[in-house]
């Protein structure tokens, strides 16, 4: 016996999951289920697609039609599923490495197409699964096993990247800010186009330990104490925003959606034979 939400949407024979004590991925995975539940979606019309990484293990735990694919390719598989059956709600669960490093090209081109996928990034600022290599979202100056003297790269702002590439809904949540993050995922699912929700996770085992961020509780308190809503952030200076984490909805526009355009093309040239 677990809560109704867990009973209904999780493969309990696979629980407890393998994530470390205090890993934010468990909180974010529940947020995805809560968003699906709040929207009252038909379970049989939801597909969860993931790549490879700690985050991508989510596809194994969630009780929907799920597919755990190869590293960086979740969005490519999801594109195929959505084009074959546009009536499905296709949700991609991916990591910062999976989505923005090896899978970065798939990400920007899915955004450019504005295909109706909801990309939920469990962003822990590190490659957790392989032992703490720095990722495209590791903040400058932070440490990873591949940045023993500190990372000199600038990091990606994932919602800004997705918006620039053509996505029509973007936002950022955190492991701490549960109701806000659930709402962003709901809005992302409702948006008819590419939605990207950057969900800042906590990886106490690698990112936290390498960067002396303390326990999972300390890392979540940092999120609580340093998050600034995007609406408020708009009126703050760069100086004031230093060291802060901007959360909330960042962008929402309507643009032609790829599977709908594809269907129109099929009809224009005489229908599928």
């Amino acid at each position: 016996m677990a809560s109704r939400l867990i009973d209904e949407y999780f493969r309990q024979s696979k629980l407890p999951h393998i994530w470390c004590p205090g890993c934010g991925h468990g909180i974010l995975m529940r947020d995805v289920a809560q968003a699906i539940d709040n929207l009252g979606l038909d379970k049989h019309k939801v597909v969860i697609v993931s790549g490879i990484g700690c985050s991508s293990r989510a596809a194994g735990y969630m009780d929907f039609d799920t597919i755990h694919t190869t590293h960086g390719r979740a969005i490519a598989f999801a594109t195929g599923i959505k084009l074959a059956k546009p009536e499905l709600n296709v949700i991609v669960i991916t990591g910062d490495g999976d989505a923005a490093a090896i899978g970065g090209n798939h990400l920007i081109h899915a955004c450019r197409r504005n295909i109706d996928l909801t990309v939920v990034v469990f962003n822990n600022n590190i490659y957790g699964m392989t032992g703490g290599q720095y990722s495209p979202t590791t903040p400058t100056g932070d440490f990873g096993t591949t940045a023993p003297y500190g990372n000199i790269d600038l990091s990606f702002d994932l919602p800004a990247l997705a918006q620039a590439a053509g996505a029509t809904y973007t936002g950022r949540g955190t492991a701490f800010h549960v109701p806000q993050t659930v709402k962003l995922i709901e809005n992302g699912i409702k948006n008819k186009g590419l939605s990207l929700i950057d969900c800042v996770s906590v990886c106490p085992t690698y990112y936290g330990r390498k960067n002396k961020k303390g326990s999972a509780v300390d890392m979540m308190k940092w999120q609580r104490d340093n998050a600034v809503d995007a609406k408020k952030a708009a009126s703050m200076s760069e100086e004031e925003l230093k060291g802060k984490l901007v959360i909330g909805e960042m962008y929402h526009r309507e643009k032609p959606e790829y599977t709908a355009e594809y269907q129109k093309l099929i009809e224009k040239v005489g229908g599928a034979k």
Partner: peptide
């Protein structure tokens, strides 16, 4: 507690729910 437990080990039920 329920919304932030990463392991779903604590939750609230409606009385008589279970």
């Amino acid at each position: 507690c329920e919304m932030r437990c990463p392991d779903y080990a604590v939750y609230l039920t409606e009385e008589g729910d279970n």
